[in-house]
């Protein structure tokens, strides 16, 4: 599976530069949850790699290699997790640098906010990947964009309240994050099983 993940990484290098610029630009906008936005946006990287696969008919070739169908499906989940984790780390670094620059205090809420973003981005991926495996990238991407902007619009609308909500829930934040984390793992396992069925039912070539 390492070969598949490496191949995906080579495919998204160009896209990655764009995402980094995206994160920097949105992180610089005041009162905008840019870091959260960036983590969510990183979900698109695994979809981009799937678009490349579809365009080049990579799957037809991949299945002739020593990979099973489950390896191919699993690699997309693992790749997505890697992208979201890297985006989260990058997001924390940008937020810390931004706070240092504006001489504000670095609080634990940065980690909680990014933690929530990471968990919900992974939930988002778990909901969307089966659709992509079932419908293909073109239709799946439309669903992705609609969901993405709906979620971000919602977050944008309540962005001023987010930090106060986090502060109000301070004592419970860890518990909520823990529960969300467990939900995310369960959803990803279910999502993987559905994606596998969807992929197996397709004639790959």
């Amino acid at each position: 599976m390492r070969g598949l993940i490496l191949k995906d990484s080579f495919c998204i290098i160009r896209q990655l530069k764009f995402v980094i610029v995206f994160i920097l630009v949105f992180s610089a906008i005041p009162n905008f949850p840019g870091a959260t936005f960036a983590v969510f946006y990183s979900v698109i990287l695994s979809f981009t790699s799937m678009a490349y696969d579809e365009q080049s008919k990579w799957d037809s070739f991949a299945i002739t290699m020593p990979y099973s169908v489950s390896d191919i499906v699993k690699s997309k989940y693992v790749f997505g997790i890697i992208c979201i984790c890297i985006a989260s780390v990058f997001s924390i670094i940008i937020q810390i640098l931004s706070l240092l620059y504006t001489k504000k205090t670095i609080g634990i809420d940065i980690f909680y906010t990014t933690g929530f973003s990471l968990v919900y981005a992974l939930i988002f991926q778990a909901l969307l990947l089966p659709m992509i495996f079932k419908m293909g990238v073109a239709k799946g991407r439309i669903v992705f964009l609609v969901c993405f902007f709906a979620v971000m619009g919602l977050l944008g609308g309540v962005s001023e309240h987010i930090s106060s909500i986090v502060k109000n829930l301070y004592y419970n934040t860890f518990n909520i994050l823990s529960i969300s984390f467990i939900v995310m793992i369960v959803l990803n396992i279910l999502s993987y099983m559905i994606s596998l069925k969807a992929y197996e039912s397709r004639n790959i070539l």
Partner: peptide, 12 residues
């Protein structure tokens, strides 16, 4: 295996 076309992604 060599298929009727070489199916490598563009950037490879």
């Amino acid at each position: 295996v060599v298929l009727d076309e070489a199916y490598f992604p563009e950037e490879i």
